[in-house]
Design a binder for these strands. Sequence first.
DNA 1: AATGAATGAGGATTCATTCAT
DNA 2: CATGAATGAATCCTCATTCAT
Lengths: 182, 182, 182, 182
Amino acid sequence: MATGHTDPQRRERILAATLDLIADEGLAHVSHRKIAARAGVPLGSMTYHFSGMDELLREAFRRFADHIVAVFDAHLSAPADRDAAREAVADLVHALSEGSQRDLVLTQELYILAARRPAYRELTHEWMGRSRVHLEKHFDPDTARQLDALIEGLTLHRALDNDPHDRALTLEAVTRITTGRA
Amino acid sequence: MATGHTDPQRRERILAATLDLIADEGLAHVSHRKIAARAGVPLGSMTYHFSGMDELLREAFRRFADHIVAVFDAHLSAPADRDAAREAVADLVHALSEGSQRDLVLTQELYILAARRPAYRELTHEWMGRSRVHLEKHFDPDTARQLDALIEGLTLHRALDNDPHDRALTLEAVTRITTGRA
Amino acid sequence: MATGHTDPQRRERILAATLDLIADEGLAHVSHRKIAARAGVPLGSMTYHFSGMDELLREAFRRFADHIVAVFDAHLSAPADRDAAREAVADLVHALSEGSQRDLVLTQELYILAARRPAYRELTHEWMGRSRVHLEKHFDPDTARQLDALIEGLTLHRALDNDPHDRALTLEAVTRITTGRA
Amino acid sequence: MATGHTDPQRRERILAATLDLIADEGLAHVSHRKIAARAGVPLGSMTYHFSGMDELLREAFRRFADHIVAVFDAHLSAPADRDAAREAVADLVHALSEGSQRDLVLTQELYILAARRPAYRELTHEWMGRSRVHLEKHFDPDTARQLDALIEGLTLHRALDNDPHDRALTLEAVTRITTGRA
DNA sequence: AATGAATGAGGATTCATTCAT
DNA sequence: CATGAATGAATCCTCATTCAT
C-alpha cells in the first residue's frame, strides 16, 4: 500500500506489532488478525512472511530477547569497579521495573513459554548467560549467580508492588548479596 | 451423569481442572470445552457454575493463591530462630522450584494477570503480605523485603535453569541478604 | 420471596414483564431468563406457570389486546354525534401515537404474529371488530371500514414520522373520510 | 463449493436468503445458520461477508427498501391527472396487500426496527419521502400526507383482514381523502 | 511475490426445558 | 406447590490456515 511492491520492513513491522500486542493484551489474546491490523498489513501477509503462529512468536521473542540483552549490556558493560557495578545493577533493576511494564510483561510471558518449551528456554538462557558474563567481571561466579537471581526478584517485586521499594533498598540488597560474610 | 442430580463437588472439580489445564497448556490455551472435558462435566455446566471465563479464572487463581499461602505458612511459621528461619527459606525455595513446575508456571501466569489487572494483584499481594509477616518475625522489615524478593528470584532461576544451583548456594544467598554489613 | 407462599399475582407479574420486555427489546430478544429477572421470579417459575414460551406469549398478547380494546372503548363509546365522534377519533389517533411508543411497538409485533398465525389474528380481529362496532354507531359500515384503516395509517405515520403531523391534519383527514362525496 | 473460488453473487445470495427467511419465519427466528443453509453457503461465510448480524440485517432491509421504492415508483410515476393518480393509488394498495404477504410482513418488521433504531428509520423515511414526492405532483402537500397515511392503513387492513375489502372501497376512500370538503 | 477470498473448527455464551427435591 | 440444579442444542463470532489469482 505504501511502497508499492516488496516492502523489506514488512517483517520487522509485523514482529514489532506482535510484541506490542502481547504486551497490551497478553499471549492468550494474540491472533493473526489483530497483529495484521496493528502492523497495517493484509491478513494474507501473515502466513506469507511466517509459516505460522509458532514461527511468528518465536521470531518476535527472539527480537525481544535481543532487546533485553541490549539493556543488560548498556548497564553492565561500562562500570569499572565493584562499587560502580553495584550502582549499575541497581539502575538496571529500576530501569526494568519502571516504564510501561512492557518489558516486564513480555519477560513473564517468555518465562512461561520457556518453562514449557526448550526453544524458548534458549532465549532466556542467552540473556542470563550474557548477564552472568558481565557480572563475573566484578564478582566471583557464585556471587554472580546469586546476584542474577536477586536482580530478577527485585525487578519483579518492584513491578508488582503497589508501593515499590526505593533505590536505597535495591542498592542495599545488591551490596549485601555481593558482600561475603564477615 | 454420575451422581444423578446435585453434585456439590462440581464447582471444585471444575476449578481443579482449570488449574491443571493452565499448568499443562498455559492460559493461552484454556477453553471451556477443554476444562469441561477434563472435569468430566457437560459444557453447559461451565457457565452455569461460573458466570463466564473471567469469574472462573478468578476463582481458580484464588484457590491457587490459597495453596501457595499454605506452602509459605507450612515452611515459615515453624522456625524458632534466625538460623532456623534461613534454613526454612532455603527449603521453601527448593520446594517451590522443584516438582512438576506446576506451581511455578501457575505463579508466572498469575503474575502476568496481576501485571494487567488489579483484581489479580490482590491475590499476589495477599501471599506477599503473608510471607512478609512470617519473615518479619525473624528479620527487620527492610531485610524481610529484600529476602522476599530474593526468594522470588532464586525460585524462578532454579526453575528455569538447565543446571539449577544447589541448596548450599541458596542458603548462602539467604544468609548474605539477611546479614547486615559489618 | 415476598408473600412467602403461593403468590397469586405471580402470573400477572410475569405477563406484564413479558410485554415490557417485548416493548423494550423486541420479540426477537425475549427469553424466559430475561422475563423472570424482570418479574423478579425464579426461572423455574416460568415453565411452571406457563407450559412454554408459546403459551406465555399468547397470554401476554391477549392481555395487551384487552388493553387496546379498553383504549378504543374509552375514546369511542362516549361521543353523542358525528362531530363528537370525529373529534374522538382524532384524540384516539394522538393517544395511540404518543407516549412511550410502547403500544405502537407491541401492536406492530402483534400484527406480525397475526400475519403468520391465526391464533394471534383472533386478537387483532377482536379489537378491529370492537372498533367497527363503535364507529358504526355514527357512520355507515363502509365509512366505518375506511375510517378504521385511516386510523391505523395515521397512527403509524405519526409514530414513525420525525416531524409528525398535527391534530388539525388528523381531524381534517377524519372529516374527509367520513364525508360522502357531494 | 460450486463456483470454485470467488463468487461475486455470494453477498447478494445471502441478502436474498435473509429477506426470504425473515418473511417466512420472522425476525425473531433469524439466525446465521438458517440463512447460510438457505443461501447454500458455509456458515463461516456469513461473518466474512458481513461484520455481524446487525450489518447483515441493515443491508438486507436496505435492499428491501429499494424494492418498495421501486413498487411505489412503478405505480405512482406514470399517472397523468388526478383521477389517474387515484386509480394508481388504489392499484398500489392492492398490489402491496396481495401476493405472498412477503412485502407486508417485511414492511412490518422494518417498522418495528425503525421504531427502535434510527438507522432503520432512514430507510422508511426514504420511501415515505419518495411516495410524498409522487403524490404531490397531483395533490397539495397536506392532502398528500393524509393520502400517504391512508395508503398505509388500507394496505395493512386488507392484509390482515379475513374478508378484505374490495377495490371499490379502496378507491372510494382514496377519492374521499383527496377531495376537499364541499 | 503477494493477497483477497474463503471456510471448517472451535471460541464463549445463552437458552428452553427437564426433573429431583 | 414451587424451584434450584442441570444440560444439550443452538446462538453469534473469531480464528488459523489454504489457495486461486
